[in-house]
Write a protein that binds this DNA or RNA. Structure first.
Length: 956
RNA sequence: GCAGGGGUUGCCAAGCUUGGUCAACGGCGCUGGGUUUAGGUCCCAGUCCUCAGUGGUUCGCAGGUUCAAAUCCUGCCCCCUGCACCA
């Protein structure tokens, strides 16, 4: 046995335990109302081939937490699946002339095998792939449910079209007018599309954001995205017409400053107003210019605000005053009403516009109460006191009062309506692509658009489709077997809907499916969902890139499904952790500010010819700076990779890949391994360090549990994988421990190694003689310190400090001494110092006022009356109770350990003498002399500076 | 412009919510020593300045509060992320 366990051989033990876990089905968990649950979830991967470092990081964090919670007695749900619909598979199929189904499964099988090699503790029974009909059937079922609830709408609207992806996109999926996936420019197109009415939940989505434990930036992004603003729709009657222009504003308090009205060029009224007039030509020019440009370019050139007068006037509903109507290139048709009441006095943009076109500027708010507004050459946009109102009853009102007064006046006169606007739009979820969930509707010439009856689900994607590179459009549309069907209502000939769902739909409820993944009667059972999802997924880990899209959709789904009666929970994720990126060194040109491919390492910059330096950049294929997890596992083992990932940085911080760091972590694993072996083989019957080592174990365990409970993985691992090794080694150097203590230490330590490096922990646990796997073990997390622990730990720290201080003086001492040093002389504090310090601590704890009563107390002390020591006593007292210069008095700085030592009358001389041999070894000095100051020669005058716990140290 | 997050001793990075035990955890790098046939591994020590030690100057910059500030307050500078002529 000895030979097999002496060497750390990760390949062997990792395979062994992965198999044992699988055979024992130890990670399978079911609803158990008697146990507290912990639902740990990672954003499931899109199966794009191999597992990459980003995945490794994400899942290493999750797996450690899942294992930690199991160890603590929780019933843990920890599932894994694949977000396997989507375009890359379809595009890959086109390239190789295959079917996305096959491409997808090849990738899934590859990723699954990678996941298993890392030893992640998933309940594999629950594995799912969204491209399976067993999953997407429920997508369709839910869609029909939403349809019943009135949340589904098919309507023709201008939508975002991506040419390259050959499909429409949701608003959330367009960044800077570019497709989030392929970065191709998106253009607007009118199409009949399917929408989910997410706006019906806008308020709840925004308001409940306050109650969930999301990172602040994610919350801010969602808040921003929903973009709720309170205001009022105001009707400006067209002069000489019956029609009105409805404008939305959040600043009704500025209504008396309106000097013109601006319409979006796309506003239908523009056309009506100018048609056949002298203003038509200039309007058309503007409108066409705007239409020609993509929205992106339009935004970019909007520094140049442009507008044209439309030749007509509208009247201010509160004053009857006529103001000109303009069309402006900066007014967005899709926000609010597409019309803006312009107040140049209090809106900088309107101000600039008014200056340019010579429109009057009127200030109707004052910055200071009771004063006239200042003329500053720019708009005052803050809240102020109303002035110059062309109507009684408004001047002097401020802020919300002012706004409310105006809204009330408008409402009572039927000229306006208080309202709330959102930036959030309904979710456009239809896609003109093959590899997605078919939308379960049928088009019938007679009956219109008819839902597929639930008993006919799933509407399956055909497998007999040939994909080719030159193909364009959706192959579903040309698959007659799929398209041709009969109408469920009238039985007549009908056609299937060929649009499929956005893949974000699939991931919007997969966490609920995981709660009851094998269910073939329903998407999930309510009891299971409510058990596992109570208060949401307890820990959800994934990338920040889904802050708005996935996380918003999932929140919407959970609420909508709740209203459908499928579950009780309202928020899917109670604690969200966005793990940081994994970066790696990349060639970098400082002058050009570009990161370059690793192949260019050592060459000059291809653009400017400068020498390249290195910089950390996100691992990416295009830079070639990726590191293959597979290779690393092969080289160092999964446990080392996991340790590196967890110890390298806190979950939310970015981390840099480093070859030397992973090697150092591998060394650490070996150090742990050999310490464990040494511990297991220890047969000593005596042990000087028993008490100390076990006290350390208790303290480490308490700290570790605290850190791990709060996802402080880096700190947790530092304790379990670093400090505890050092403690073990220190105990060995200081005289070793007995078999009993070693065994006890290992029984505390090995389980602590388990969350981060489970294979090694299981192996050692078994060698230790335990029969039950750690995977099946619950350990006591309520370990507390023993009463004597502070003293035990304090003494050892005292020794270390004495040695440290001796070392730091050594060099200086050498300079003052001729010849080699031969002895270190340690003078501990005089008895009276110990006594005074003890009293001072007690007095401090009793709340004694040292400033007032300090010197009076001193005078009662015997050693104070002795003229020869009086000065020293004074000085000492000051150091102890008030400190000197920047350093506080010792009574304040001593911790629990020090206080305990001083108060229990710790005998420093006896302790140091007993350890003289160790000290002389550590300091590599022949002789160690210890005595109380005054009881031996006062070498180098150190007796005076000796303090309790800080003996005077001299060299000779 | 708006919003969110940051700037800590060579690098990475704790701590700052609940001011004092913070010259400030830990890792990397570097230096020295030991172990080893050698290299590697491993172990020990050092790594702001000064000094036979309880001293000085540090935690983006400048002020302020306090007996006491990396930690609280004010202003400024810089960096990152998201949104953006949103009325």
């Amino acid at each position: 046995m000895r030979d097999t366990v002496m060497e750390y051989n990760p390949a062997t033990i990792e395979a062994k335990w992965q198999e044992a876990w699988g055979e024992g089905a130890v990670f399978e968990s079911d609803v158990d109302q008697s146990k507290p649950k912990f639902y740990c979830l990672e954003m499931f991967p899109y199966p794009s081939g191999k597992m990459h470092m980003g995945h490794v990081r994400n899942y290493s964090i999750g797996d450690s937490m899942a294992r930690f919670r199991r160890l603590s007695g929780f019933n843990v749900l920890y599932p894994m699946g694949y977000d396997s619909f989507g375009m890359p598979a379809e595009n890959a199929a086109k390239k190789i002339g295959g079917h996305p189904h096959d491409v997808t499964w090849e990738n899934i099988n590859s990723i699954r095998s990678d996941l298993q090699k890392m030893g992640f503790s998933y309940d594999w029974r629950r594995e799912l792939a969204t491209s399976d009909a067993t999953y997407y059937k429920w997508n369709q079922w839910i869609f029909l449910k939403f349809h019943e609830m009135g949340l589904v709408e098919r309507r023709t609207a201008p939508v975002n079209w991506c040419e390259k992806c050959d499909t429409v996109l949701a608003n959330e999926q367009v960044k800077n007018n570019r497709c989030w996936r392929c970065a191709d420019e998106v253009r607007q197109k009118d199409m009949a599309q399917w929408f989910l009415k997410m706006t019906a939940y806008a308020d709840e989505l925004l308001d409940s954001l306050e109650d969930i434990d999301f990172p602040e930036n994610v919350r801010a992004m969602q808040r921003n995205w929903i973009g709720r603003s309170h205001g009022v729709d105001i009707d400006f009657p067209l002069v000489g017409e019956k029609e009105v222009i409805r404008a939305f504003t959040t600043r009704p308090d500025t209504i008396f400053g309106v000097t013109f009205v601006t319409l979006a060029p796309e506003h239908p009224l523009c056309e009506t107003l100018v048609s056949g007039t002298e203003y038509e030509a200039s309007y058309r020019e503007l409108a066409e210019e705007c239409a020609r440009m993509s929205e992106f370019d339009r935004v970019n050139m909007l520094r140049d605000k442009k507008g044209v007068f439309l030749g007509r006037y509208a009247s201010n509903p509160l004053t009857g005053e006529d103001v000109p109507i303009y069309a402006g290139n900066f007014v967005v048709a899709s926000y609010g009403t597409g019309a803006v009441m312009a107040v140049p006095g209090h809106d900088q943009r309107d101000f600039d516009f008014a200056k340019k076109y010579d429109i009057p500027i009127r200030q109707v708010l004052s910055e200071e109460q009771g004063k006239e507004p200042k003329v500053t050459g720019r708009a005052f946009e803050g809240l102020g006191w109303m002035v110059n109102s062309n109507r009684d009853g408004f001047d002097g009102l401020y802020g919300d009062d002012a706004k409310q007064a105006v809204i009330q006046a408008l409402e009572s006169e039927g000229m306006g309506q208080g309202t709330t606007q959102y930036r959030l739009k309904d979710w456009l979820l239809s896609r003109q692509r093959f590899w997605g969930t078919p939308i379960p509707f049928i088009h019938c010439d007679d009956c219109g658009v008819v839902p597929v009856p639930t008993e006919d689900l799933p509407v399956e994607l055909p497998l007999d489709v040939v994909f080719t590179e030159d193909q364009s459009g959706n192959p579903l549309a040309s698959h007659t077997g799929f398209v041709n069907t009969s109408c469920p209502k009238c039985g007549g000939k009908a056609m299937r809907e060929t649009d499929t769902m956005d893949t974000f739909y699939d991931s919007s409820w997969y966490f609920l499916r995981f709660a009851d993944a094998m269910n073939n009667q329903a998407p999930f059972d309510k009891i299971s969902a409510d058990y596992w999802m109570k208060d949401g997924v307890d820990l959800y880990i994934g990338g920040i890139e889904h802050a708005v899209m996935h996380l918003l959709y999932a929140r919407f789904f959970t609420k909508a499904l709740r209203d459908a009666g499928l579950n009780d929970v309202s928020e899917p994720f109670s604690r969200l952790v966005c793990q940081g990126m994994v970066n790696a060194p990349t060639p970098y040109c400082a002058s050009c500010n570009v990161e370059l491919h690793v192949d260019l390492e050592g060459s000059p910059c291809p653009t400017c010819g400068d020498a390249l330096t290195f910089r950390s950049a996100k691992m990416s294929k295009s830079l070639g700076n990726t590191v293959s997890p597979e290779l690393m596992i092969e080289k160092f083992g999964a446990d080392t990779v996991r340790l590196f990932i967890l110890f390298g940085a806190n979950p939310e911080a970015g981390m840099d890949w480093s070859d030397s760091a992973i090697e150092s972590n591998y060394r650490q694993m070996r150090a742990i391994h050999s310490a464990l072996i040494q511990g297991i083989e220890n047969n000593s019957t005596t042990g000087n360090m028993d008490e100390w080592l076990l006290a350390r174990a208790r303290k480490s365990h308490i700290d570790w549990n605290g850190q791990m409970s709060n996802i402080g993985l880096r700190e947790g691992v530092m304790i379990s994988h670093f400090e505890m090794v050092s403690d073990w080694q220190w105990a060995q150097r200081r005289g070793g421990v007995s078999r009993t203590a070693a065994q006890s230490y290992l029984r505390t330590w090995i389980p602590m190694l388990y969350p981060a490096t489970p294979h090694l922990a299981e192996e050692m646990w078994q060698i230790l003689g335990e029969e039950e796997m750690l995977a099946n073990t619950v350990i006591d997390m309520t370990i507390t310190a023993h009463e004597n622990d502070p003293i035990t730990l304090g003494q050892e720290e005292y020794l270390r400090r004495v040695i440290d201080r001796a070392r730091s003086v050594r060099e200086l001492a050498q300079r003052h001494t001729e010849g080699a040093l031969s002895a270190v002389i340690i003078q501990t504090a005089q008895v009276w110092k110990d006594d005074l310090a003890k009293k001072a601590i007690k007095m401090y704890q009793d709340g004694f006022n040292f400033k007032q009563g300090g010197s009076k107390f001193l005078q009662t002390q015997p050693y104070f009356r002795d003229e020869s020591t009086k000065g020293e006593v004074m000085q000492f007292w000051k150091i102890v109770v008030s400190g000197q210069k920047k350093r506080r008095g010792r009574i304040y700085t001593w911790g629990e350990q020090e206080n305990n030592l001083v108060q229990t009358g710790f005998d420093e001389v006896a302790f140091l003498s007993a350890n003289a041999e160790f000290i002389s070894g550590a300091l590599e000095i022949g002789s160690v002399e210890v005595y109380r100051a005054g009881e031996g020669e006062d070498v180098a005058g150190k007796s005076r500076s000796s303090l309790p716990l800080e003996p005077g140290i001299a060299w000779r």
